[in-house]
Design a protein around this nucleic acid. Structure first.
Lengths: 583, 583
DNA sequence: GTGGTTCTCACCTACGTGGTAACC
DNA sequence: CTGGTTACCACGTAGGTGAGAACC
């Protein structure tokens, strides 16, 4: 671990700076939800700042008052930071693969009797395609110069938001429910199957993403038809950024996964696994298939992680050892049948604290070596991208941000017509032809008209890397979510989604269709994710697993100042305090 | 199978005859939901028939109009009938055990956009305790005279309704959702743990029950506080009656379970199970532990059932063999991760049709032999029962039916005070002392005041065995359900229940508490379940697995005539038609 | 000892892992 | 050929079975 830091390319996206303005813009959008077609073509939401409506309380009768402070903290932040130090990778498969470090959040500040929906949007975190260099180790040798992630050309068009969003199965639930115990998103699955019918999040391989959690208040069920008038907050944690891959590139990531994911215990070196992992292959890449002893430095890590793996060993006497409440509390973190996942991990971290603190507590030291991304790689030859770009302009996108625009968050509102979407879909179809991806028979049913309207987004990746930020979601955000849910509902069954939510969002969808789909498409900062700040922003993270991370204000009446949004480093520092930091 | 029919005691409970009156009574209750305390002390609901309010349409603005016809059919009726021919037994354990033939229902007639809750209440189906004679086979011999289920004394006090009710995890959902695919209750678990915290259904061993499905309309979420004003229908299927046991008594039941439940494949004789089952022990009960060859007659059954077991063998190529939609449809019946369960069984039935039709199609022929129950067994010495009966009267129960009253359905409304419930709880506590059941440390927390009000019922078993019947649930029915849900919600977590439901029912609970818990406690017909009719009422069942069973009208404005409720045999005959029979 | 309950076990389903090789 | 994707596999976790012994 301490041997390769300067080769790893851990990236810390700087936060988008005008998040507060976006927030205001959203609020204004909500006030204008008069079911009539209206369009905003402001390239800069700063134009909306003169609207002082956002300082007013909610429209009378629009719902109960908001809670004062809502804070979200990443329970398994330490584990995420370990992965982030190596540039997290997440496997995506056709049938869907879970994220291994799953988002496990401790939520505070909600109204106990209020009702909320929790959503996780996997937001594109880079405008660039990514590439791993020197992955296999063509020649044996401990130097491994040039290994790491670089960028390669512009990003491919991303699936629409409603294909990248996941509604927490408990939604909607009371604030008491969400705050009672950590909320786990471990059931979420990532896929690269564009026609996925399982409500999995559809991503593109070799692209960078960051999970974004949405908390949407939907308290008064009698007012669910006006759900988009309800406030919502979004939270994301920089250390949860990851690159979607179909096969692991960095073997250190593989090692971390094996040593921390209980489902991968079969590959741990402690156990009698059928085939020893291909780890420690940096000295001899062709002979490593045997049970070669490895260097002492690497063994240190193995030992500590093997120790941690013991933490999640199954104990058949558990039901007898613990009393009922304890069992439930333990199961609570594991989230139903979802394996120990990170709960075993969190305990493993505390165990490893005692054994090898330099790995657990000095992850920032390791992270100081993350550097040297190549901001402008020659783009790969992907003609469908160029083709896409051409037609994108033909589709009448009037709010698309320029590729290298500053980190302004731009609201984009288009006249979304069936024709436009059809052409976009056709391009998508061609794109798949280029990629030789499967052309499945479900595809025609997927292009049914109602799916048309909200299933394709012509490359407008969202990006809001700020912690401690909140804003209100526009109507179409939920219309897309609804579409996603609707697909899932009709295709899936007794699974993770529940019709209560569907029925509620169905109404919203109908309204939002009259709304004619204004878009929420903030532009990206130029290579926001490809340029790592010299000072790692994760440094101030607390060493404790619990109550690490992010806190956020959640009060409409006391929004942060518009003119001076906190810098990324500031918001990261605020996360040190653990809860309800006000900066 | 054809060798032992005269020894089996399959029972077919005659339907309660005054179900229609109960229906009217319920409707009247709904009109009186004025949030004030009001009490009905009518021992015979016939007194309510003069109230013509039930013929009126719903109170204006009380909700959308009802759908015309709602029909529910038992998808896996054939499997249930196989078990019912041997008197179905269900294992109950401390931690909860699934029902093996689980209720899998095809629902029709709902409004696609309407919202409904589905609940399963495991209703006591007998006033008697039950006992199996000659279970182990004390002496080897193929005669086995006297084997079978008999009754032994009165039933023990039953857990309260809210401990015997299970909310389908999908609730609430749209009619479209419920009708889109069969609804499976395979996640339901039965327990004998009176202090169960897992929302399992609490039953008493050696007692007879029948599952009752409730469909409750909760369409307008803005009116959920008046949920009990919404209409509800209940359906039950006589062949789903079962006796709760802690260990199987009838080895033929064991055989059926092993041969049809995929999770019990390890005990099938086809496979190389570690220990061959103790089946075919009727000729040599002490030597049967070995791999004895058995009679040809029995082998016929084994062959057909082993063949059927092949149907549910796992196919690793399934994702490739089926397309996406087919895979989902197949998984749909299996209900998420709930094993093949009866879906493999339904196919096995069709397979067995070709091989041994006399077992599949002529189950009524087998059933003609079910007979000779002992209607008046000398009651066992169970002093806590007598103690319970004594205090039951002291508790001020003015609406309790006499033990041998006719099959009138009696609505019981009591001044439910905390004192009364406390005494009832104390008796329950004593009862458990007598039985040497576990006194767990959760017990004190379970007796918290709010739990007090709705968790104890002083022996008022419900009984409505009619098919094709529908009635409206009173407020307290849902208050109890809500209590059940509330317990589950606080004790469980990411599991089967969802806070949407809890939040909605929480409001109802608060209202229902002002309502002061009127009770819905129809009396039982004398030995309704212990006396089998000479002609098996299951005879008219359709041989097809799909669309067998029950249909029911669901229209407030066209209720069945009051004076002449259909006889049990009539309603059973109506089930032949498969759908929307009008008796 | 009897009758019923509980615990443990081997065996199964279901599914989450990364490795591997085939595939394109 | 390269680089990325896919299918399959052994090996885990998690949990649903009845048998059988232990228990009361």
């Amino acid at each position: 671990m301490s041997r390769i830091p300067q080769l790893e390319l851990a990236r810390f996206p700087p936060a988008s700076v005008l998040h507060t303005q976006l927030q205001m813009h959203h609020q204004m959008l909500y006030r204008q939800h008069n079911m009539t077609h209206h369009h905003h073509h402001h390239r800069h939401p700063a134009e909306e700042l003169t609207n002082n409506g956002w300082l007013l309380p909610p429209t009378p009768g629009a719902g109960p008052t908001l809670p004062g402070n809502v804070s979200v903290s990443l329970q398994n932040a330490k584990l995420w930071q370990q992965f982030h130090a190596e540039t997290t990778e997440m496997i995506i498969t056709k049938l869907g693969r879970r994220m291994f470090p799953s988002l496990q959040l401790q939520i505070e500040g909600l109204e106990r009797r209020g009702r909320y929906c929790l959503l996780l949007e996997v937001t594109p975190a880079s405008r660039r395609r990514h590439k791993y260099l020197g992955g296999g180790g063509v020649n044996g040798g401990s130097v491994n110069s040039g290994r790491g992630w670089t960028t390669a050309g512009p990003a491919e068009p991303q699936p629409h938001v409603n294909r990248r969003v996941y509604l927490h199965p408990d939604s909607p639930a009371t604030g008491s429910h969400w705050m009672q115990h950590p909320v786990s998103f471990n059931k979420l699955k990532l896929t690269n199957n564009a026609v996925d019918h399982h409500s999995n999040v559809v991503l593109t391989s070799m692209h960078k993403y960051i999970p974004t959690v949405w908390i949407v208040r939907c308290d008064d069920v009698s007012r669910l038809t006006l759900l988009f008038t309800q406030p919502a907050s979004s939270f994301c944690f920089p250390e949860t950024e990851f690159i979607a891959v179909t096969a692991y590139q960095n073997e250190n990531i593989t090692k971390l996964k094996i040593d921390n994911n209980p489902f991968a215990k079969g590959f741990r070196e402690t156990g009698q696994s059928r085939c020893k992992r291909k780890m420690q292959s940096f000295d001899s890449s062709e002979v490593d298939e045997d049970h070669l002893p490895h260097h002492a430095g690497v063994r240190e890590e193995d030992d500590e992680e093997n120790m941690s793996s013991l933490e999640s060993a199954s104990n058949p006497l558990l039901p007898q050892v613990f009393d009922e409440d304890q069992r439930q509390r333990a199961k609570r973190v594991a989230s139903e049948s979802g394996s120990f996942d990170d709960s075993g991990v969190s305990s493993s971290s505390s165990l490893a604290d005692r054994i090898s603190p330099q790995f657990q507590l000095n992850s920032d030291n390791n992270r100081k070596s993350s550097a040297t991304p190549a901001p402008f790689q020659p783009p790969l030859h992907r003609p469908w991208i160029d083709h896409e770009e051409e037609n994108k302009e033909n589709a009448g996108d009037d709010g698309v941000a320029t590729p290298d625009s500053q980190s302004h968050l731009i609201l984009q509102n288009r006249h979304t017509t069936v024709e436009n979407n059809q052409s976009a879909w056709q391009q998508y179809h061609n794109h798949h032809h280029h990629h030789h991806q499967q052309q499945q028979q479900q595809y025609p049913s997927f292009v049914q008209p109602e799916v048309h309207h909200y299933t394709r987004d012509v490359f407008s990746p969202h990006h809001h890397h700020q912690q401690q930020r909140q804003h209100f979601s526009p109507a179409v955000e939920f219309a897309r979510i609804n579409q996603h849910i609707q697909n899932h509902y009709q295709q899936m069954h007794y699974g993770q989604l529940y019709c209560s939510q569907i029925s509620q969002l169905q109404r919203l969808k109908n309204i939002a269709m009259q709304f004619n789909s204004p878009r929420f498409t903030p532009a990206l900062t130029p290579r926001c994710s490809d340029l790592s700040p010299p000072n790692p922003i994760l440094l101030p993270f607390s060493p404790r697993v619990n109550k690490v991370a992010i806190a956020s204000q959640f009060d409409r009446h006391s929004c942060p100042p518009l003119s001076s949004p906190p810098s990324p480093s500031l918001s990261s520092v605020a996360s040190i305090d653990g809860s309800s930091a006000s900066s």
